[in-house]
């Protein structure tokens, strides 16, 4: 997980016009922690920010909105302690982007620059996109989902989808129905015979059951 975040930071620094990048995430209790930073200097500034409980990253996490600090030297009133410390470390501007999933903020991606002025709009968009995907990846890790199990489920779901569509095609051709009517007929038959739709479709698709052998559509057998 930390590997991914380090990678995310490195890519932000390489691909975007930023000096250093860091990720802060909320611990289960809700307190922010510095998870990864692209430089030791930034890590020190971020740790200070958490201790002082003021600064763009903290505000971004609190509000769930991007915070753009285009000129840190002019921010001695908004965040006096943080701004001084960041400027001392050589940074002149900072952008903090929320890591959000379905309205829930889990942390912030922090991008610091030695130049004045915030990131250009396209860079901000790209950075937010990276933050969004990293958020998904983090949530996935937190729920401790096994990639192999998920992949098996994905393959099985895709295969079911293939089989059902193929069976619809076969029934459609064999019975002169359109594919939607063919699907109705498959479902009708599965219901009448208490079969799983996927099992019935597999039998049709692989030729074990003739598509014309299905119960005709019409009044249900049930009284």
């Amino acid at each position: 997980m930390v590997d991914l975040l380090i990678l995310l930071n490195d890519r932000c620094v390489e691909a975007l016009d930023v000096t250093a990048a860091g990720v802060m995430l909320a611990a289960p209790g809700g307190d922010l922690q510095v998870l990864a930073s692209s430089s030791a200097a930034l890590r020190a500034v971020e740790l200070f920010e958490l201790q002082a409980e003021e600064g763009p990253c903290v505000e971004c996490y609190r509000t769930g909105e991007p915070v753009i600090a285009a000129d840190l030297t002019a921010l001695d009133r908004r965040w006096p302690r943080f701004a001084r410390r960041a400027v001392e470390a050589g940074y002149r501007s900072a952008d903090s982007l929320p890591m959000r999933l379905r309205g829930h903020t889990i942390g912030a991606l922090n991008l610091f620059r030695t130049a004045l002025g915030g990131l250009a709009a396209p860079d901000l968009t790209a950075a937010q996109a990276l933050a969004d995907v990293a958020t998904i990846a983090i949530i996935q890790h937190r729920t401790a989902i096994d990639a192999h199990i998920l992949n098996d489920q994905l393959s099985e779901a895709l295969n079911s989808r293939v089989i059902i569509e193929q069976a619809k095609g076969k029934v459609s051709q064999a019975s002169g129905l359109d594919v939607d009517q063919a699907f109705d007929r498959l479902r009708h038959h599965a219901r009448n015979h208490n079969l799983r739709l996927t099992d019935l479709c597999r039998n049709i698709a692989d030729g074990a059951l003739n598509p014309t052998a299905l119960d005709p559509l019409g009044p249900s057998r049930r009284l």
């Binding site: 569509e165 069976a167 095609g169 076969k170 459609s172 698709a205 598509p211």
Partner: peptide, 11 residues
């Protein structure tokens, strides 16, 4: 649609 067509062509 491709899988549906495959089913139809197979018949």
């Amino acid at each position: 649609v491709v899988q549906q067509a495959a089913g139809m062509v197979s018949v």
